[in-house]
């Protein structure tokens, strides 16, 4: 029984490696030998890009989501809360931001999580660090960035995302806005009869990996194909530097403008990243593009509406404001470095 749990993932991993490292070969073979398309033509190169990128990104997605699913089975909202209880402001912000990356989170459970944190005495600023990091640095974003831009941009994204979550949470903590939480929040008597923790064995963790792949890949694959399709189309057809005049480095307002456009937009990471890759290719500087992406996936209108139930307007706006300013600063820093 136990060996079979091991065996399947190992066989699948072998297959994965075989396919992944031969993709370039196969896609070139398909384009040049089977379809016999003329080399160098726009349509040919757009197709080549599409046929290579789609399976590549999907393969990366499946493997990493599987691993993330297993890792996440070690982290629960309850354990994260326990780890954060009684932490001082700065340490708490750092820990909350990092735990925000690995703890399973969806914006629909933002409220129970917020209430659970506040109720057990975790400072508001620390709670916000978690709420900022959790959606912004998510596994789909990380995989796509890695697949399309390489590890450097990915590391930059994770690093700056963490810095924003830590500082924004810290600033909110220092502003002492506790009284701007809706008063009913403090009246909640949460039960602590949580029962014993579910006992999870190795086999269940592997199952959690499969479940994560089924759930997340099942939801985002279509966005990825569309996104890469748009990317491929723009690859050969839209002139380079098309966007450079509008959003280029020399225009000072490009960063705040792209962030202001990004905040009300709501998309998952899978839908937005291929678009970002096109923007970058067409002359939008890296900082501006990353800032746009952070604004789209880190701050969203639906989440704001959900949070309005527990936060008074002033706190909600402060939260949105602090994060927006953080993203804009990061955008400018990158445009200066690159």
């Amino acid at each position: 029984m136990k060996s079979s749990k091991w065996l399947l993932p190992i066989i699948l991993l072998g297959l994965w490696i075989l396919i992944y490292f031969n993709l370039q070969l196969v896609s070139n073979w398909l384009i040049d030998k089977i379809f016999k398309l003329p080399q160098g033509k726009h349509l040919t190169e757009a197709l080549r890009f599409f046929i290579f990128e789609v399976p590549k990104v999907l393969l990366l997605l499946v493997l990493i989501i599987f691993v993330v699913g297993i890792i996440r089975s070690f982290f629960t909202a309850e354990r994260t809360r326990k780890a954060l209880e009684g932490k001082s402001l700065f340490t708490g912000n750092v820990m909350a931001s990092m735990l925000g990356i690995v703890t399973p989170f969806c914006s629909c459970s933002a409220i129970p999580l917020f209430l659970g944190f506040v109720e057990s005495g975790i400072p508001l600023g620390v709670t916000f660090s978690f709420l900022i990091a959790a959606p912004m640095i998510n596994e789909v974003a990380v995989i796509l960035l890695f697949g399309l831009f390489g590890w450097k941009v990915t590391a930059i994204y994770i690093g700056t995302g963490l810095v924003i979550a830590i500082t924004a949470g810290w600033v909110i903590g220092r502003l002492k806005l506790e009284k701007h939480v809706e008063s009913w929040v403090y009246e909640i008597k949460a039960g602590h009869a949580e029962g014993e923790e579910e006992k999870i064995g190795f086999g269940d963790r592997i199952e959690a990996g499969y479940a994560a792949v089924k759930e997340i890949v099942g939801k985002v694959w279509i966005y990825i194909i569309i996104g890469i399709g748009v990317g491929a189309a723009a690859h050969g057809y839209v002139p380079e530097s098309f966007m450079a005049n509008l959003m280029g480095k020399s225009t000072w307002y490009s960063v705040p403008l792209s962030v202001l456009i990004g905040v009300p937009l709501y998309s998952n990471a899978a839908g937005i990243i291929p678009i970002v890759s096109v923007l970058i290719e067409k002359g939008v500087p890296l900082g501006t593009a990353l800032a746009f992406m952070m604004a789209v996936i880190g701050l969203s209108l639906p989440e704001m509406i959900i949070l309005r139930k527990v936060l008074k307007m002033r706190l909600l706006l402060t939260f949105a404001g602090v994060v927006t300013v953080g993203i804009i600063i990061v955008g400018y820093i990158f445009n200066t470095i690159y």
């Binding site: 629909c108 409220i111 129970p112 999580l113 659970g116 949460a190 039960g191 602590h192 009869a193 139930k309």
Partner: peptide
């Protein structure tokens, strides 16, 4: 949400059988 919090649940959805979170 008030009712949900009584069970000490921080991640939804959750199933409660005979008043016990399973």
């Amino acid at each position: 949400i008030m009712e949900i919090m009584k069970y000490g649940v921080m991640s939804t959805p959750a199933i409660v059988i005979d008043e016990k979170v399973v």
